[in-house]
């Protein structure tokens, strides 16, 4: 089994309104030193077998589903065999 960890973030050019709301909440918690929060998404995808081109498969899943290339960017780590 191969584990792939995918991280999706809004591009810097897109205002992250959820991140702003979370930042405001940290201030009400008295953490006035928090200057920015940006919120993303984290996915763990398990593949049964190592395909011939795992990176191509992951790229296609990310581009076609997990991230919207208009507003989001992604990166991933292939963790390798897990039991």
């Amino acid at each position: 089994m191969i584990l792939v960890k995918v991280y999706v973030m809004l591009k810097d050019s897109v205002v992250d309104v959820q991140g702003e709301a979370i930042k405001d909440a940290t201030h009400t918690m008295s953490y006035e030193n928090v200057s920015e929060v940006r919120m993303g998404k984290y996915f763990e995808i398990k593949f049964d077998n190592n395909s011939n081109d795992l990176e191509k498969d992951v790229d296609e899943i990310c581009d076609g589903l997990l991230a919207n290339p208009n507003i989001e960017s992604y990166r991933y780590e292939i963790v390798g065999d897990i039991q």
Partner: peptide, 10 residues
Amino acid sequence: PGTLTNNRQN
């Protein structure tokens, strides 16, 4: 083209 995302006022 484009995308719809969270309202500015969230």
